[in-house]
């Protein structure tokens, strides 16, 4: 396809041959991303439904389990992710403004926030592991308080199963998101994004906001309500 004329207002970016215009491609990509987000919601949703059902069935056990989590670390991570959502949104904003430097700054900050989130998560995980608070059948607490609670609630491991599954699946999404943002940074350095073409930034942005969205629910469910 040598139709340069069909890409008037997107200096440089050639849309795929089966779309009639770059505009159509942009909307299709966005719709595809939203559809992907729908699948993500339903996948995480299964976990949430399971969590809520068991939380209603064993409220005291879940409360006992939540006492092992430090809500301050959870709150810190909430703030980090919310801030990263802002910078992600701003990187799209600056792409719309044709400001390559600020696009890059915001993408780097977003990536850094992802790192901070994962480091805090790593601290939380290691502290759980060091107290023997493993998921499922490896659950083996060796701290008096935990042992006592374990005797009181023999199924206490289930709370940690949920904790590790939910945060683990969420954390893996953060890692994937960070990888995608790294890819955006690489492309932004080459100057590929501008007001006429920023579809990848927008789509990765949607994914990153979804990761934030899930954490918005995970934080109170795991750390606060218990």
């Amino acid at each position: 396809m040598s139709t340069v004329s069909s890409s008037q207002h997107n200096n440089g970016h050639h849309h795929a041959h089966h779309f009639e215009s770059a505009e159509a491609e942009y909307h299709a990509s966005k719709f595809g991303t939203w559809t992907f987000l729908v699948t993500e919601i339903l996948m995480f949703g299964g976990l949430f439904v399971g969590y809520i059902l068991y939380h209603e069935r064993y409220p005291q056990m879940f409360h006992a389990g939540s006492t092992f989590l430090d809500w301050r670390l959870g709150a810190l991570n909430t703030v980090v992710l919310l801030f990263s959502s802002l910078t992600m949104a701003l990187s799209i904003y600056y792409a719309q403004m044709n400001d390559k430097r600020k696009v890059l700054i915001n993408l780097y900050i977003t990536l850094a926030c992802g790192f901070v989130f994962m480091i805090v998560k790593a601290f939380e995980y290691t502290s759980k592991f060091s107290h023997g608070l493993f998921p499922g059948k490896y659950f083996n607490p060796h701290e008096p308080h935990a042992i006592q609670l374990h005797q009181q609630f023999p199924d206490l491991a289930q709370y940690f199963s949920f904790y590790f599954t939910m945060t683990g699946l969420h954390g893996s999404h953060v890692l994937v998101g960070m990888g995608l943002i790294g890819w955006l940074i690489y492309r932004a350095h080459k100057g590929e994004f501008h007001s006429g073409y920023y579809t990848p930034v927008e789509c990765v942005g949607l994914f990153w906001h979804l990761v934030d969205l899930i954490w918005i629910y995970l934080f109170p469910l795991l750390y606060l309500v218990g």
Binding site: S85, M88, A89, G205, L206, H209, D212, L213, I216
Partner: peptide, 11 residues
């Protein structure tokens, strides 16, 4: 409410 804000503005 928070999710709504993220969806409406950020997304």
């Amino acid at each position: 409410i928070k999710a709504g804000l993220v969806l409406a503005i950020f997304m």
